[in-house]
Amino acid sequence: MTVVYTKEDLKAELLKLNKNIGFVPTMGYLHNGHKSLIEKSKSENEYTVVSIFVNPAQFLPNEDLDKYPRNKEGDIKFCEDLGVDILFMPKDVYFDYEPKVIAPKELASILEGATRPGHFDGVLTVLNKFFNLVKPKNAYFGKKDTQQLMVINNMIKSFFMNINIVPCEIIREEDGLALSSRNSYLDEEQRVMALKIFRSLTKAKNMIENGELDSNLIQKEMRGILEPLKIDYIEFVDKEFNKIDKIKLGESIILIAVYVGPTRLIDNIWI
């Protein structure tokens, strides 16, 4: 594995590869969720490039940029053990004056965007940079960030980018908690409380399997399970992110964001 820290060195290394490149962009503190993305990339591409960059542009002023978990040496070993070809770890990728990619408000001002205005602008801006540097055939993202997937696909289509975005299944702990770097913020009691998130989604899935398709009734049961956690949102949408009152099997997504103590966690299920 080659570790590079500048865009110039990255370009030089990429010249040695052919065009069949899989790309896994991350913010580091790698876990088994990232492992699944890397392994899928390795199975579908001749070469795999991973980036680790805690992107300041997608953090709001009051968010956790400074304390976001980092583990440089551990991440390098993690990628090396998985057989990554190139690990790109830039210190910065921004200039004093540069254009910015603005996510369409129809997709980016709801749910995550309502709570975190400008977040998706930062995500798209840095991905636009990385896509232009790496020029991957395929890029891999987890379904836990479903709205992010929607916004990225919109950029790929709108900018005529020749990149295939590959959604990957959510990876969970044995007890159901979705893997997230922010789980490291949870103390023992909060970790137990966080399990209410998966329990509420499981309740929703069971209700649907038993024939209940009314979103309002399902949400009421979910809210009861989540007490006393602070709920940011529970939303039922179709695959174009339109709100729905009735579940349509094979076409619906239930998304949730809650605070466990000060830590905000998201999760979802595709129905």
Rank of each mutant, 00 (worst) to 15 (best):
D145C: 05
Y29A: 03
V126K: 06
S109E: 15
I38R: 01
R70Y: 11
T26C: 01
V24M: 01
D64A: 14
E63R: 06
D187W: 05
S36N: 11
R116T: 04
A57C: 12
E63N: 11
T202G: 09
I110H: 08
G176M: 02
T146C: 09
V54M: 11
K105N: 14
G224K: 15
M1V: 15
G122W: 03
K16H: 07
I21Q: 03
G176H: 08
L265Q: 00
M1K: 02
V49Q: 02
I218Y: 01
D96N: 15
L229F: 10
V237T: 14
G142A: 11
D85W: 05
L107T: 03
E221I: 12
A194I: 01
A139T: 13
R264V: 12
I234R: 00
Y233M: 08
I76T: 04
K16A: 02
I102G: 03
N55Q: 09
K105G: 04
L195Y: 04
N71S: 10
T125A: 03
I152T: 03
I231V: 14
H119F: 14
I271S: 14
I86Q: 00
G113I: 03
D96P: 06
K196Y: 11
T202V: 07
K11F: 09
K203M: 10
F141L: 03
A139W: 07
E46W: 10
L133H: 06
D96V: 11
I234S: 01
I165N: 04
N20Y: 07
I208N: 01
Q148V: 02
D66A: 15
G176K: 07
E174Q: 10
K144G: 00
G22T: 02
P228C: 15
V123D: 01
K230W: 14
I110W: 11
M193A: 12
V151A: 00
T26L: 01
K100T: 14
N183G: 05
R116L: 10
K246V: 15
I208H: 04
Y185W: 06
L14F: 01
E44C: 09
C168F: 10
E39D: 10
Q190T: 01
K205T: 12
I253F: 14
F23W: 08
I271P: 09
D9H: 08
R116V: 00
V49I: 10
K40L: 15
T2F: 07
F95E: 10
R191S: 13
M222I: 13
R223T: 09
L82C: 12
I76D: 02
F95G: 04
K16F: 05
Y185E: 01
M150F: 11
F131P: 00
I171D: 00
E63F: 07
M1H: 12
L255T: 14
T115A: 13
C79R: 02
P262H: 13
L14V: 02
N154W: 15
V260G: 00
Y259H: 15
L14A: 05
P90V: 01
M193F: 15
N62L: 15
G113T: 02
F53P: 05
L149M: 13
G261L: 11
N55F: 02
N153F: 12
L30W: 03
K144M: 09
M161F: 10
N162L: 11
N45C: 08
L177Q: 05
N153R: 12
A114N: 09
G118S: 11
L30K: 09
